[in-house]
């Protein structure tokens, strides 16, 4: 299956899985803070660690796939790949708009600033995961 994937599909898989890998523990930590099981200091350290894991993972894994197919990595996106990007962006836009409206609704409830910021961050992460996930679906469907 990996051999059938284009360079950009592999790249999308890397970003999707890495983002999922760091988003789950980060938001789980937020739930622990809310329930009093952890401190915001520990949350900050975890956040730094996850950002480092994300950056190092992106660089190392992308370096590996670039070495596997250097010509594809240098080539600009073709028309089908640009179409896939646009279609995925459209799906993610609706997710982002919906979650933004939900955050606006959340503001009218008795929640503190920390929770609103977490909700905003969750919106952005979910929209990004949706965009990457939609791209993967379109790549698998051949558009």
């Amino acid at each position: 299956m990996l051999n059938n994937m284009s360079f950009r599909e592999k790249s999308t898989w890397i970003s999707f899985l890495l983002l999922l890998l760091i988003a789950v523990p980060f938001f789980y930590q937020f739930v622990r803070i809310e329930s009093g099981a952890s401190s915001s200091q520990a949350s900050f350290h975890l956040f730094l660690l996850l950002v480092i894991v994300f950056i190092v993972g992106e660089v190392v894994l992308h370096a590996i796939i670039v070495m596997q197919s250097p010509r594809d990595a240098r080539a600009p996106k073709d028309e089908r790949e640009r179409l896939i990007d646009l279609k995925a962006m459209r799906v993610a836009f609706f997710v982002l708009m919906t979650s933004a409206i939900l955050v606006i609704v959340l503001v009218h409830f008795p929640v503190d600033r920390f929770e609103i910021i977490q909700a905003l961050l969750l919106s952005v992460v979910v929209a990004e995961l949706t965009m990457l996930g939609a791209r993967l679906v379109y790549y698998r469907r051949d558009v």
């Binding site: 994937m5 284009s6 950009r8 080539a75 028309e79 089908r80 469907r141 051949d142 558009v143």
Partner: peptide, 22 residues
């Protein structure tokens, strides 16, 4: 033609209609 192999495959299978230029 300046596209990826996967795009040629998609065109060949009739899953993607290319632009006039391609």
């Amino acid at each position: 033609i300046g596209v990826t192999r996967q795009t040629v495959n998609a065109i060949e299978l009739g899953k993607y209609s290319p632009s006039l230029e391609v």
